[in-house]
């Protein structure tokens, strides 16, 4: 008897399985056909908390080096030189190695003025891995550290700075 129950059970379960798969034929496919067949660029649809490429707004950076200490794998390098006579501190270099960064978000939490923050950008393909070192201060420029009592400058749309940096690396004007 076990012989026939085996046959009946397998027939029924094959039929049941086929019914399920056939019913899937009439359901809407789920694929998001990035990058070309989607209504709006994917960066817009990601939530605000998304931890994408890092971006530093050097105008409101107070050069407190908190983010550099917080990063477990030394991805951020900031150099501040003190002008001897005018006792003024200038940020000479602010580099973030996006290739080595693991997007853990520990630096963003320590920043008092939210100068360094995550963007929703994720497509960071560049011809050479060296290009992924995002230099937020052009060599030779100097940036004045932001004093909290100064008036905060106009807010820029998140992701603009890093996107500009990446485009300049890829030769996109």
């Amino acid at each position: 008897m076990q012989y026939f129950t085996n046959i009946k059970r397998s027939m029924m379960s094959v039929l049941e399985g086929m019914a399920v798969t056939f019913s899937w034929l009439f359901r809407r496919p789920y694929t998001v056909q990035w990058p070309d067949k989607i209504p709006e660029p994917l960066e817009k649809t990601l939530p605000a908390t998304y931890r994408g490429l890092l971006e530093v707004d050097t105008r409101i950076c107070t050069a407190c080096l908190a983010c550099e200490k917080a990063c477990p794998i030394e991805v951020i390098a900031i150099e501040v030189d003190r002008n001897s006579e005018t006792k003024e501190r200038h940020i000479v270099r602010f580099d973030v190695d996006a290739a080595k960064c693991m997007y853990c978000g520990l630096c963003v939490e320590q920043c008092p003025t939210d100068a360094i923050h995550h963007t929703t950008l994720f497509a960071a393909t560049t011809p050479d891995i060296g290009d992924l070192v995002l230099t937020f201060i052009k060599p030779g420029e100097r940036a004045l550290p932001f004093k909290p009592k100064d008036a905060p400058p106009a807010a820029i749309e998140r992701g603009a700075i890093t996107q500009a940096l990446l485009d300049s690396r890829r030769g996109v004007e």
């Binding site: 039929l15 019914a19 056939f22 019913s23 359901r27 809407r28």
Partner: peptide
């Protein structure tokens, strides 16, 4: 057998369409 198969397909489809 074929009718039962079609009926099962419709049942499977309906079970999920409202939630979707």
């Amino acid at each position: 057998v074929v009718l039962y198969y079609i009926w099962r397909i419709v049942a499977n489809y309906r079970a999920d369409s409202a939630n979707y």
